[in-house]
Simulated assay, not measured.
Amino acid sequence: MFIKNLKLESKFNVFLLIIFIIGSILTSSLLLQVLERNAEIEVTSKAKLIVQTMNSIRDYTTSNIQPLLDARLEVESAFIPETVPAFSATEVFQRLRKNEAYRNFFYKEATLNPTNLRDKVDKFETNLVEKFRNDPATKELSGFQDLPGGKVFYIARPLIVKKESCLRCHSTPDRAPKSQIATYGSENGFGWKLGEIVAAQVISVPAEEIIDRAQDALKIIMGVLLGVFGAILLTINYLLRRAVIRPIRKMVKTAEAVSLGDMDAEFEHQSSDEIGLLSTAFGRMKSSLKISMNLLAPPDEKTP
């Protein structure tokens, strides 16, 4: 194995690099999950705030506006759309979108069979309504969707015909106000039933910028970790050379000198750590070797 042929300092660097790579992969994966989760929480909170606001507008229209204008629906030549909760919520939201900060936000009460065709479901919205119909226990659907303008986070909730009063405009054309027929005709928006899920309330919040911020944060964190690792690697290398590599190299040179017959060479390392103990052991070994060689030498060559 090639690691066996590396010097001690290189082996330490290889091991540290492997640890850093594994740690970086695990850390980046965990951080990405945390940052993406935080991004989802942020866009979810924005979406739910708008949904709650739109529902408040719907409730206000139903309880305060409809009673005031309801009688006029039979006598006016044109239908008064402000009496419809969906119309009020949509119009208010369109005004909100004129603010640059909310330009890419979208709100729609996507309806399978709407009176106003601007509320007609598209393919994606049809799928949402069908999911609610197939599983009435589902109260909310959410997720990310890729659109031409970027990734968005959507929340969808079912809209159910809960009140008998709603069927006045949506059961049969003969029950509908005359102004409604005059404005929208008798082809669309009828046949609804009490308790039926007829639409999905959908709010879309741009998520591209928030996700980009999360990814930028990940890059910064990983950059900081890389910098910290570099500083640690340099520090460990410096301490390794000073406390281990240099003393070992000195002992290697001394051992080579002793092996060549220089008995005056000394193993010098003034410390009580493992390197110091090794130096002391080599010193004792040199002394034992010197004594053994002196005993084996001829009388005239023995040293005192």
Rank of each mutant, 00 (worst) to 15 (best):
A39K: 02
F282E: 07
I65F: 06
G149Q: 15
R241K: 15
K4D: 12
E109K: 11
T115M: 02
Q33D: 13
F79I: 03
L239A: 11
P148H: 11
L117H: 09
E76A: 12
E9Y: 04
S287W: 03
R72T: 05
A243N: 12
I245Y: 06
L218G: 02
T111C: 01
P173H: 00
L112M: 10
I232H: 09
S45K: 14
G283I: 02
L26E: 02
P298G: 07
I41D: 14
N99C: 00
T53R: 12
H170A: 00
F20G: 01
K11R: 15
K120G: 03
R175D: 08
E130Y: 09
V84N: 13
L141C: 05
P114S: 08
V129I: 14
L218Y: 01
I220F: 03
A78C: 04
K163H: 04
K108I: 10
F267H: 06
R157V: 10
M293L: 14
E256H: 08
A199N: 05
L68T: 06
P85T: 09
L233A: 15
L8S: 13
A257L: 14
S77L: 11
E9Q: 11
R242S: 07
D262A: 05
N134P: 00
A297N: 06
P114V: 01
V84Q: 14
F282K: 09
T172L: 03
A47F: 05
T303K: 15
L17V: 04
R95A: 11
K193S: 07
S179E: 07
F153N: 00
Y107L: 15
S287I: 05
L218K: 08
A255I: 10
A207S: 12
M251H: 13
L296P: 01
G149S: 15
V244T: 08
Q201P: 00
D273L: 11
F132P: 00
N113Y: 10
L73E: 15
N38F: 08
